[in-house]
């Protein structure tokens, strides 16, 4: 299940953020969102928040939670798996 969710997330993130250079199948599970990983900025982050809310019904609307969740693809997937309201 987690593996499936991770693959789905990778594909959605690459599509939503239009990351032309990146093949979602080659993304490691522990890829960092920031700090030398995908190199996202604050607008990208808001787009991710919107994606997670829209597609999984998971709201991440404060900075403390964001710091815990938006570390790597795995940390995000784990949080979604625990809190998702949409399948």
């Amino acid at each position: 299940m987690m593996e499936e969710l991770l693959q789905e997330l990778k594909k959605k993130i690459v599509e939503e953020l239009d990351l032309k250079d990146i093949n979602p199948n080659e993304l490691a599970d522990d890829t960092l969102f920031f700090d030398g990983g995908l190199g996202l900025d604050s607008v990208d982050l808001m787009v991710l928040v919107a994606l997670v809310d829209r597609d999984y019904g998971v709201e991440i609307f404060n900075r403390e939670l964001g710091k815990e969740v938006f570390i790597t693809l795995s940390t995000l997937a784990e949080y979604i798996a625990k809190h998702r309201k949409k399948n």
Binding site: M46, F61, N62, R63, L65, G66, K67
Partner: peptide, 13 residues
């Protein structure tokens, strides 16, 4: 303030 990236998340609340 947008000191770090995560500050933007507080915007919605």
């Amino acid at each position: 303030p947008r000191v770090d990236l995560m500050d933007i998340l507080s915007l919605i609340k």
